[in-house]
Design a protein around this nucleic acid. Structure first.
Lengths: 248, 248
DNA sequence: CGACGTGTTGAAGGAGCTCAATCTAAGTGG
DNA sequence: CCACTTAGATTGAGCTCCTTCAACACGTCG
């Protein structure tokens, strides 16, 4: 955890521009944010539930997930994150972390001091709006997960999350939804879908048996995207990747 | 849907101040937002999934909920809202509504044009931050619901949602967590917890049998708050009602 | 009065869980 | 290079929490 580099924040600038057109001086302000970077190992904590917020974290490479624990120790994974995601913007404004963030793979993370995020939003309101927009999209994904977990059966849940992951990878130019490495263990996938790892295993095998996907360890090949999409009751509009209707 | 009144937006100003200290001119800007109000009947739609965003909606009185539908028609209720809540800030920034909002009881709603919300955030960045903060708290509640539905058993889920509702009522000065009218049918409560109405019914009766609550139609009397809190694995920190650690 | 929405109850069935064994691949140390 | 370990994936068998279906109770409202 060291080195103060200016150009590290490219992925953030790119993400924010996806949400809102930014002028050169605004982009510059984003890129000039002070930050320190760190290399994170798989399963290492980036944020711990209860932490007092001192900085926000941006994922520069690799994958991470958010988790909460129930009183009896059961784990719930409520989000998966990839390059360019602010894994906890909320720490910039809320007092304490209400959940943990953990690395899924080798990852690089940039830490940006809390007050600089707030200062950025105050000095450059358009950037503030872009970050707010980002939070709104996050919230939309949480709602879809509530639906996924509460009202879809096991097979559909798994198919849905596979669709979402591929779609998001593609959206940030990190691969194609037709073939990718899914970076979670079956136990983590279980915690992300409200199932057990045993049942996740059976459902993955069932999806393969039906010819929707082909698997080789964590490598997923989507043999029939339309069928997987149908099986997963997947409609990407909740990801708000299109910006139709968003002017100004 | 008519009448253009200035002082209608008091509940919004109060809510935003809860999240961030605002100066008189900032407050005035909030209160001066143009808006139209409407009386809404129970189960009437306030926003429909797929709607193109033209305005944001503020709940002035009564209760409402957000829902999404699965492909097979199953319903998921992902949030309950009360006085002062912006039931769809996301419409101000995102292009289309990714879910519906429906009235739970008789309600009064203020519609604020999309561009005025955006304009407010641009002209008064502190107000923009307050609205962003509001979205972050919303997202925190969604995460807790994901945990609630995915990793808690039926009795715990119901107890948890009863705790949350009472706590939030109290926070906005609309009652006490020890006794309130819970404005949902058992079927709606089922859709908010990922259960069936039959099982919700049995769990409510079990909570009463154990002496945690007393019921009379929708009226809930919390006989033993601490026990209910324990039974519901409830820890209110995710509501971010305290502002400890939040300076400036 | 009949119809409807909501709540309550019983009985039977099933989707997913639990427990436990086995398998595989990738280290790790000798 | 091989014995040993470990994390994760796979499989089977039995069980349970919750669902499904169906009936009935109750209050309200036309």
């Amino acid at each position: 955890m060291s080195t103060l580099i200016q150009s590290e924040l490219g992925p953030l600038a790119r993400k924010l521009q996806l949400w809102r057109a930014l002028e050169p001086p605004e982009l510059e302000a984003v890129l000039r944010l002070p930050c320190t970077t760190a290399a994170i190992r798989p399963s290492q904590y980036i944020v711990r539930e209860g932490d007092i917020a001192k900085h926000s974290c941006l994922l520069l490479s690799g994958f991470a997930f958010r988790q909460k624990l129930a009183g009896d120790g059961e784990r719930s994974i409520c989000a998966i994150h990839m390059k360019g995601d602010m894994v906890d913007l909320q720490n910039s404004l809320l007092g304490h972390a209400d959940h943990s963030v953990q690395a899924l793979t080798e990852a690089r993370v940039a830490f940006i001091p809390r007050e600089d995020i707030v200062g950025l939003a105050l000095a450059w309101p358009q950037v503030g709006l872009a970050m707010w927009h980002d939070t709104l999209v996050d919230a939309s994904i949480f709602r879809e997960w509530v639906l996924n977990i509460s009202r879809r059966d096991a097979l559909t849940r798994i198919a849905h999350i596979l669709c979402e992951f591929g779609m998001r990878l593609e959206a940030i130019g990190l691969g194609t939804r037709h073939s990718y490495v899914f970076p979670m263990t079956q136990e983590q996938l279980a915690d992300a879908t409200g199932l057990t790892s045993v049942h996740v295993n059976r459902m993955l095998m069932e999806l393969a048996r039906r010819g929707l996907i082909e698997r080789e360890f964590r490598q997923v090949r989507v043999a029939d995207w339309d069928a997987l999409r149908r099986a997963g009751d997947f409609d990407e509009s909740y990801l708000h990747l299109d910006r139709a209707g968003v002017e100004q």
